[in-house]
Write a protein that binds this DNA or RNA. Structure first.
Lengths: 343, 343
DNA sequence: TCATATTAGACAACCGATTGTGTAAAGAAA
DNA sequence: TTTCTTTACACAATCGGTTGTCTAATATGA
């Protein structure tokens, strides 16, 4: 096998008897290079199979056109949709995307943040690890004018971009929907002690909706879970159904939990939605396929990714201090399906 | 806001009155540097918040410790699991992962391959786009000793690493299972004209299992789909159920199709599995949750990712020509659930 | 005609880590 | 004491694209 050397602008320069700087400028249509030369250079570059070395460009210009993504995992549907959105927006502006998974570990997140910085990414999009309480490892980005956008699971107190939905409002809307369907005893699952305020916000919305409709808030109808898994959902629902006065509705802050609720109800002979109406969150693919279909809150995951990426790309062009605290809210919608449609 | 400059080895050198080369060597425990100096350098580096610039290192050494992933989309469960596996293996060896989505477009794939090359990735893991027929855009990797691993959707004729399952055997096993459950008229869905041989292989396994058990292969029980979507599955199944002699079993080469089959059957009052047994493929999360649970072929997606990443990392250490055609087969298993369990 | 503007392109420094080569000093072996 | 080895570190080239500065030539305007 021949040992190919990467073709460089110097190779092109030599072949055409021009200076390397001229090649560099010609390739990006610099005004000081004649059309004739530009055409010739581009033609030769193509023939020789020239591919620019982004490392060299990045080193020199300190611009890598790379967006770093730091998220708990790529397998969660919401997050893979988020990636997809980021990726599409990035591709449009000729940015690359580099992805790292914290697996919800704080230490991993710290290490990976360093690795992203080491790679001199142009910007970072992050959804925090469950474990994360301290966010000082993100200072390296802020301190070096690397735009940082938090998405979905965002820190309370960090002064940077955020792209989120209004979780309070979404929780309120979901609960209100159940009330409108005639539910009187609405249960709620939530996450135990969370740093990001996402589940707390949903819970606040739930509570306010109840209060607003003169429905008492009952502690035994609110269950805090350590993990938002199918199994945890089944366990919690059984606990709910074992109550003397079992609930007739449930707002689950995730579709997997809603699925577990629907199936647990079915197993116990409880009719969904007539005896027990359920609404989930996220509009995961499964919510649409399971029977009965599950009502849910749509979460524009791809759009969020797109918005986050665009914030970074836009921000790189014109850094304005006053932008720094910008929060982008994206709309949620109640998607009514069979699991909660009683009327 | 202060304009921080990135801390470099030169900054450390200046502070300690040492040469930059000494700093560089000290940081990687080079034997020619005294322990005392090493300790001092590392200490100071930490204090000053030094983070190595991987661009500079990559440019100089032509090694980036980055694995490029080029796949149709990240949102498909199989592929996001694959990524997860790659990522875990990469992290272990201190590699970064850079992901690009072809969205099943050939042109995108060509462009993104170039972009990966431009980023001087150390290796590439690829699952081909549906559209791809020609694979010459991968030559740039092979020609430059950049290890290339195809996963799952692999080209027939490209001389490089592959990590795949034995699709023929999996198809055979799935079909045999249905036969053992007493099915006499087993239908099969497949993809229309595919470049990668994955669906064709599964079909071959299906056919051979039938032949081996003296069951006639009937063309009207084999339907080729353009897209492997839920809707396409529903349509195909309705077509099957409309036959004079409808099938009593189905081997679907994907779980989404299996789900659509089960639900279509239920809608038409056909009992699953008694009148119609179904087996899918991939063990997507949904197969476990839907009712009835769907029997499926487990596909070790994360393991495949891990294997692919390890091939690259290992190969980078010792490039041997004779390795070049290595094919890694990973095991599949028949996972029997309710949708096909008759006896 | 002279001064200014524009066009064309060369030269060289630069980004930051790496590494081959060189040198000086201290210790070990002869 | 001399030679060899080891230790400890400095110097400078290198990777490849970018960009400020400079020279020269042609074109435009006063």
């Amino acid at each position: 096998m021949e040992e190919h050397r990467h073709v460089t602008i110097y190779d092109i320069a030599e072949k055409l008897n021009l200076a390397a700087s001229t090649i560099s400028r010609a390739l990006k249509d610099h005004h000081s290079i004649s059309d004739k030369t530009i055409k010739k250079v581009k033609q030769t570059a193509k023939e020789m199979g020239f591919v620019p070395n982004t490392l060299a460009a990045g080193l020199r210009g300190n611009v890598t056109k790379t967006i770093g993504i730091l998220i708990p995992t790529v397998t969660q549907p919401f997050l893979s949709s988020l990636i997809s959105g980021i990726e599409i927006a990035a591709q449009k502006s000729d940015y690359s995307v580099i992805i790292m998974q914290s697996h919800d570990s704080y230490q991993m997140e710290v290490d990976l943040a360093k690795s992203l910085y080491s790679n001199r990414v142009s910007g970072v999009i992050c959804s925090l690890a469950m474990e994360t309480r301290d966010t000082s490892h993100f200072k390296q980005f802020s301190n070096n004018n690397i735009p940082l956008v938090f998405v979905d699971r965002v820190p309370k107190d960090y002064d940077t971009f955020r792209v989120v939905i209004n979780n309070y409002l979404a929780g309120y809307k979901a609960t209100k929907h159940l009330i409108e369907q005639g539910c009187k005893r609405i249960a709620h699952l939530t996450a135990v002690s969370e740093f990001g305020n996402l589940y707390n916000e949903r819970k606040r919305g739930y509570i306010d909706a109840l209060i607003e409709h003169d429905i008492p808030v009952q502690d035994n109808l609110i269950i805090s879970l350590k993990e938002m898994t199918y199994e945890a959902g089944v366990k919690a629902c059984n606990q709910l159904f074992d109550l003397k006065t079992a609930p007739d509705g449930l707002f689950a802050p995730g579709d997997i939990l809603a699925v577990s609720a629907v199936q647990t109800a079915k197993k116990r002979g409880i009719k969904v939605p007539d005896q027990f109406a359920v609404i989930g969150f996220n509009n995961d693919p499964i919510s649409e396929i399971i029977e009965p279909n599950i009502s849910t809150i749509t979460h524009p995951a791809e759009k969020m990714g797109k918005a986050a990426a665009e914030l970074i790309i836009k921000n790189l062009k014109s850094v304005k201090e006053e932008d720094a605290k910008e929060i982008t809210f994206l709309n949620t919608q109640v998607l009514i399906r069979e699991s909660s449609r009683k009327i």
